[in-house]
């Protein structure tokens, strides 16, 4: 890394010799062609490219009956578990980088919808499919394992019975090929 910095400093040398100019008013995002995304004032979410909404995007067939929804404390319980999972992930040094510069508002909503839908707790999943929603995140098997451990912790803290935890994980485990990129 220091090697690279030295290179960068060397390469940038001519700049210091060029005539000084005031760069404070420069719109760097425009100069570099960065597309600005504007937060939706109602939902607080950033826009995503258009996609077809389909509950099948959740990637698993939901449970039937209300036993799983009850084990997770209904929609309120699921929302708490999902929020806790997101909090754990953004604080987890193993995988925190993956969540940086991501729309966590949208993540909390779609993840809640997905778990709620799979547990048959009365939701429809409106998010993208697992392959699209994880595109270019560069996630590894170890990242996925770290997330699973955080989900287990969130479920344990919510006192979801261990067998019910595993029944949810059984629905999520086959998605690994779509969420692990490298």
């Amino acid at each position: 890394m220091t090697f690279a910095l030295a290179f960068a400093l060397l390469a940038a040398q001519p700049v210091t010799e060029a005539p000084q100019e005031d760069l404070s008013g420069v719109d760097w995002e425009k100069e570099f062609g960065v597309e600005k995304k504007v937060v939706d004032p109602v939902t607080g979410e950033l826009p995503v490219d258009p996609y077809t909404q389909d509950p099948a995007n959740a990637g698993a067939t939901p449970f039937t009956g209300d036993s799983m929804a009850k084990a997770f404390g209904g929609q309120d319980g699921i929302r708490k578990i999902v929020d806790r999972l997101v909090d754990l992930n953004v604080d987890d040094p193993r995988i925190a980088d993956i969540f940086k510069n991501q729309d966590l508002v949208r993540l909390r909503r779609t993840l809640f919808e997905q778990v709620c839908f799979i547990l048959d707790a009365g939701c429809t999943y409106t998010g993208r499919d697992m392959k699209s929603s994880h595109k270019d995140l560069g996630t590894t098997r170890a990242d996925l394992n770290a997330l699973v451990e955080n989900l287990q912790q969130a479920m344990r803290e919510a006192e979801v019975p261990f067998a019910a935890q595993n029944r949810l994980l059984a629905k999520l485990a086959p998605m690994d090929k779509d969420v692990v990129e490298r």
Binding site: A4, F7, A8, A12, R141, A142
Partner: peptide, 28 residues
């Protein structure tokens, strides 16, 4: 024109920020 090539150099020369340690202990 100065900063872009240097950024390019950085990208070439720098290891990935999250270079995988040999022992990351990532198994469940």
């Amino acid at each position: 024109s100065c900063i872009l090539p240097s950024l390019g150099l950085m990208l070439v020369a720098a290891p990935p920020a999250n270079a995988d340690p040999l022992l990351d202990g990532g198994k469940l």
